[in-house]
Simulated scan of single mutants.
Amino acid sequence: MKSGSQTIDEPLREEIISRPDMILDDRDLMQALIAANERAMGGNIVDLRGIAMERLEARLERLEDTHRSVIAAAYENLAGTNQIHRAVLRMLDPVEFEPFLHDLRGEVADILRVDSVRLVLESGQTEDDPAVRKLGDVLSVAEPGFVEAYVTEGRNIPLRQVTLRQLSEGDPEIHGNKAAWMRSEACLTLDFGTGRLPGLLVLGSEDPHLFTPQQGTDLLGFFAGVFERAMRRWLS
């Protein structure tokens, strides 16, 4: 070596020569070497290979971000599926109607992580009923047409099985004394069969991001289908 030039310790030099992959696999170290090479070449030389490597690195970072997002979404979907399955199994346990509705407000609501649950049944006879009063914290009876009006908010749009929306506050008629705290809700329309008026199951949450229009509805659609079939046993 010429006098004044920098040298590398011999053991380190031998280690690098014997295991160059240590350098190649270290992104920060490779970037430092490339930067040093560019400085040595001066500002008048364009290093096309270096530019290409920078672009490849940027693409790799984007791919890694996408990969992480896909994995996170897959885990979230799996967790949501398990959550719905647990809620369905708990919902099918009771053999009497009153425990069925109490579980809906209690353990099923806890599994789904919702803060409000209301089952609305349309009926041609909406006079005060002792059974309805007894279950008034989860069950209410409404006039025909209420379900469509509530879900569509009076707009001329198709009535879907699952409607997800964010709220400034909930409807006291549905969420009771919790209405002021509701920030999102899922409206599940229920078909009880030919000749029967529809029903509505409303799940409310204080979390504005729990139910949003951008989310998929397949899992809640499955839950609604199981729920309406379970209800047919009690309505028969």
Rank of each mutant, 00 (worst) to 15 (best):
S69G: 02
R68E: 06
P94D: 05
D103V: 07
A74C: 12
D65H: 03
L63K: 05
A109N: 07
E107T: 14
A74Q: 14
A79G: 06
R113L: 14
L112R: 02
V95A: 11
E98M: 08
E64K: 03
I111G: 04
S69I: 03
A79V: 11
V114W: 00
I84C: 08
E107S: 11
V95C: 08
H67A: 04
V88Q: 03
L104D: 08
L101E: 04
G106S: 13
N82V: 15
D93G: 11
D115L: 01
D110R: 08
L112V: 06
E98D: 09
S69W: 01
H102P: 00
R86D: 07
R62W: 00
N82Q: 14
Y75W: 11
L89W: 09
Q83R: 12
F100N: 02
D103C: 09
D115W: 01
R62V: 02
I84P: 05
F97H: 00
L104C: 14
A109L: 11
E96W: 06
L63N: 12
V70P: 00
A87M: 10
D110Q: 13
V88G: 03
I111H: 04
P94G: 06
G80A: 14
A72Y: 00
L92C: 02
D110V: 13
A72G: 01
N82E: 14
M91S: 10
T66D: 09
V70C: 00
D65A: 07
M91C: 11
I71M: 08
F100A: 03
L63C: 10
H85F: 15
R105L: 15
E98T: 12
V114S: 00
Y75Q: 14
D103A: 14
L104A: 15
E96L: 14
D103F: 11
T66K: 04
R86Y: 06
D115G: 04
N82F: 13
A87Y: 10
D103I: 08
Q83D: 02
S116E: 09
L89Q: 12
L89N: 12
R62D: 01
E96M: 12
M91T: 13
L92R: 02
M91F: 13
L89Y: 11
E96C: 05
D110S: 13
T81K: 07
V108M: 10
D65C: 01
L112E: 03
R118F: 02
A109S: 11
Y75E: 15
Y75M: 14
E76L: 09
R68A: 08
D103E: 13
R86S: 08
D110W: 05
F97M: 00
D93A: 14
H67W: 01
